[in-house]
Write a protein that binds this DNA or RNA. Structure first.
Length: 562
RNA sequence: GCCUCCGUAGCUCAAUGGAUAGAGCAGCGCUCUUCUAAGGCGUUGAUAUGGGUUCGAUUCCUGUCGGAGGCGCCA
C-alpha cells in the first residue's frame, strides 16, 4: 500500500475526520505530509491523539501555524530504499486502473505525406500516456488511424504522375501547389482512387500506400513506439455511412441535401455538424462512427477509448463523442479526447502542403550529429557511439515535447528547443549513467563486494549515525533524495489520472537534481566508512532504478554509458 | 458575431484552493591532482488588469485588455 494512502487512513481512523487534504509540504523542514486544520484550538489535541496512535512509519507530528505536519521515520526511508531495489523495474506501478481495458489511438499519420516533426507530438505524448496508463494497471491496446483515402491522396498521385522522380512527400506538396489550376483532374483521380477503375492509378496508389506505411514502421521502430492495430479511413468510411443512414430520423436528420447531427438537441449540448455531404460521401465525422464500430469489434469489452489529437479538433470531438454515444449507448462516457498543442516553426505553422517542413528523420539526424560531436573523444566504438547518440538525440527530442502540459503549443526553435543541459532529456540520462558508473565501480572494488547495497539497517545511513543534534555536511542532500524516492508511485498515479506525462518529467528532474547535489557533496564510495557507503550506494541504486523506470514511462531509453 | 483554450522572471516552462510562487536557459561570481563538469554552489529576476467568493486565490466566478484555435458539406 502506498504510504500516502496509509497516512490518510491513519489520520481518518485516529481523528474521525472525513474531509482533509493530504499534501507534501513544499519545504522539507515542514515534514513529509501535511494537512490543514480548521480549528486552531483543537490542533494540539489532534497532535496528541495522532502522537499516541502513531504507526511505525511516522516519526513525529507537529503543529505549524494552520498546518499539521507529519514526519516519516528513518525506518520508513530505509525500507523504501530496499523496496525500490527489490522491486526493480516494477517499482512505481499502481492499481489505479486495475481491471480497465483501455484503447488509445494516436499518431493519425496520413500515408503519402511526410512524417514531420509536428507528428512527433501526438506520437510522443500518446505513447507516453499509454505507458503510464499501463503502469497504473490497465490492459492496453494501441491503435493508429490513417487517412489513406481523400483529396490529399489524389494530390500526391497527381504530383507523382506529373513528376515521377519526386518522393511521395514532395509529390504531395507539388499536387497541393497545383491543385487550384488542375482541380478537375485531381478530383477525377480522387474518384478513381475510390472506385478503383484505373489500372495506373491503382498501381500508383498501392505502391505509394505500401511505401508510406513501411516508412512509418521504420520511424516508429526508431521512436520505440508500437501499435497493436492500424485502422484506415478506407474501411471506416463505408461503415460509418451505413450506420449514419440507418439512423436518419432517429439520431441524424437530412438538411440542405446533407445528413447532419443536431448537437443542440442532445445532452450534453453541442452544435450541428455534417456527417454525410451532399454527394452522399461520409465526412470525417461519419468515419469516426465507423471507427468506433471497428474498435468495438476488435476489442468488444473495452472500458475506455482515448483519442489523442491536436487541439484544433476539440469542438469536433465534443460533438462526435455525443453522436457516438447516441448510436452506441454502451459507449457513453467511455470516450476521452486528449488534445495537445501544435508544434510551430518560428515563421508559422508547419504544413506538408506548402513543403514548409522538417521531417522527423531529419531532425533526429541533426540532433544526433551534435551528440556525436560531443562524445567524439570518448573511448567508445563507432557502433556504440552511434547507438548512444541516437538514444540521446531521441531522448532530448521527446523530452522537449513532454516537459510541458500537453495542451500548449510549442514554438520549435532548433537551437533552443533541443537542449542537452539543465532541464533536459540528456540531463536525466546523464544522471542515470553517472549513478550506474558509481555502482559499477563499487562492484569492481572487492572490498565492497559483501557490503554493497545492503540496507537492512537504515541506521547505517550517515544521517542517522550522527548524534541527536549534531549537524553533518551532506545530511540535507541525503534527506532530499530519500524524501523524493518513495513518491514516485504517487506521481505515476497522478500522471495516469490526469493523462499528464509532464508531472513525471518535473518529478524526475527534481530527483535528478537532488541526486546530483548529493553526488557533488558526498563521496559515495568511501572506504573509510564502509557502513555509510553501503547505504549511500543503495540510495544511488534506487535513484538509478527510478530514473530508468520513469524515463521508460516517457518512452525515453537510457544508455549505460555516455 | 458566437464558442473553447490561454496570459507566471528578459526567454522556455512548473505549481493538488494552502506555508517564503518552483525549474531551466540567458547574465554575473565560484567550482574538475576526488566516483563522468551533459555536473555542482551562489546571485539578479515574475502571477496581464479591475472587482468578487474564501480563514487563505496563480488556481474558482466576473468585467477589461492581449494571444491562439474552432464555428454545416476538409481531415
Amino acid at each position: 500500500m502506498q504510504i500516502k494512502v496509509k497516512i490518510e487512513e491513519w489520520v481518518k481512523k485516529t481523528l474521525g475526520e472525513e474531509s482533509f487534504q493530504l499534501v507534501h509540504p513544499k519545504d522539507l523542514k515542514n515534514g513529509d505530509f501535511a494537512f490543514f486544520s480548521h480549528s486552531p484550538k483543537m490542533k494540539n489535541d489532534l497532535v496528541q491523539k495522532l502522537e499516541a496512535n502513531k504507526i511505525p512509519e511516522v516519526e513525529k507530528v507537529e503543529v505549524a501555524g494552520p498546518f499539521v505536519n507529519v514526519y516519516l521515520s528513518k525506518e520508513f526511508f530505509g525500507d523504501s530504499v530496499s523496496k525500490i531495489i527489490e522491486e526493480g523495474e516494477n517499482f512505481g506501478k499502481t492499481d489505479l486502473f486495475e481491471g480497465e481495458k483501455v484503447f488509445i489511438e494516436h499518431t493519425q499519420q496520413n500515408p503519402f505525406k511526410e512524417f514531420h516533426i509536428g507528428h512527433l507530438m501526438p506520437n510522443t505524448i500518446g505513447d507516453s500516456v499509454a505507458r503510464i496508463i499501463k503502469a497504473n494497471g490497465a490492459e492496453m491496446r494501441i491503435a493508429s488511424y490513417h487517412g489513406d483515402v481523400g483529396l490529399h491522396v489524389a494530390k500526391a498521385i497527381w504530383g507523382k504522375m506529373e513528376k515521377p522522380e519526386l518522393s511521395w512527400g514532395d509529390a504531395y506538396a507539388h499536387g497541393a501547389e497545383g491543385f487550384e489550376k488542375n482541380k478537375e483532374e485531381i478530383v477525377e483521380i480522387n474518384k478513381k482512387v475510390y472506385n478503383r477503375t484505373d489500372e495506373k492509378i491503382n498501381s500508383l496508389y498501392d505502391q505509394g500506400r505500401k511505401e508510406s506505411l513501411e516508412n512509418f514502421e521504420k520511424i516508429y521502430e526508431k521512436l520505440d513506439s508500437h501499435f497493436d492495430f492500424h485502422f484506415f479511413e478506407s474501411e471506416t468510411g463505408e461503415l460509418g455511412k451505413r450506420i449514419v443512414k440507418e439512423n436518419i430520423g432517429k439520431i441524424f436528420e437530412e438538411s440542405e441535401g446533407a445528413v447532419v447531427f443536431r448537437g443542440e438537441n442532445f445532452e450534453p449540448k453541442t452544435h450541428t455538424r455534417v456527417f454525410l455531404n451532399k454527394e452522399d460521401l461520409p465526412t470525417y465525422e461519419a468515419k469516426e462512427i465507423g471507427l468506433a464500430k471497428i474498435k468495438k469489434e476488435k476489442w468488444p469489452d473495452y472500458t475506455k477509448s482515448i483519442t489523442v489529437t491536436a487541439n484544433e479538433q476539440d469542438s469536433f470531438f465534443k460533438v462526435v463523442e455525443v453522436a457516438i454515444g447516441e448510436v452506441f449507448p454502451e459507449l457513453k462516457g467511455k470516450l476521452k479526447h486528449l488534445s495537445h498543442g501544435m508544434l510551430k516553426l518560428p515563421d508559422g505553422k508547419m504544413s506538408s502542403r506548402t513543403g514548409n517542413i522538417i521531417t522527423a528523420e531529419n531532425l533526429i539526424d541533426q540532433v544526433k550529429e551534435r551528440v556525436l560531436d560531443k562524445i567524439k573523444d570518448r573511448e567508445f566504438s563507432d557502433k556504440e557511439k552511434n547507438q548512444i547518440s541516437e538514444i540521446i538525440a531521441i531522448g532530448a527530442i521527446k523530452y522537449s515535447i513532454l516537459r510541458q502540459a500537453a495542451g500548449g503549443d510549442i514554438v520549435f526553435d532548433f537551437e533552443k528547443s533541443i537542449s542537452f543541459e539543465g532541464d533536459s532529456g540528456p540531463y536525466l540520462q546523464y544522471t542515470y549513467v553517472r549513478a550506474k558508473s558509481v555502482l559499477g565501480k563499487a562492484q569492481d572494488l572487492t572490498s565492497f563486494e559483501s557490503e554493497t547495497l545492503r540496507v537492512e539497517d537504515p541506521n547505517s545511513s550517515p544521517r542517522f549515525m550522527r548524534g541527536e543534534k549534531e549537524e553533518r555536511p551532506g545530511d540535507f542532500e541525503i534527506q532530499e533524495v530519500e524524501k523524493m524516492l518513495y513518491r514516485f508511485s504517487e506521481i505515476v498515479k497522478r500522471a495516469g489520472k490526469e493523462y499528464a506525462p509532464h508531472y513525471l518529467v518535473t518529478y524526475l528532474v527534481e530527483l535528478a537534481s537532488g541526486f546530483n547535489s548529493f553526488y557533488a557533496r558526498e563521496k559515495i564510495i568511501d572506504e573509510a566508512n564502509r557502513e555509510a557507503s553501503a547505504y549511500k550506494l543503495a540510495l544511488t541504486q534506487a535513484v538509478a532504478q527510478i530514473l530508468k523506470n520513469g524515463l521508460h514511462l516517457l518512452g525515453i531509453k537510457v544508455p549505460e554509458r555516455m
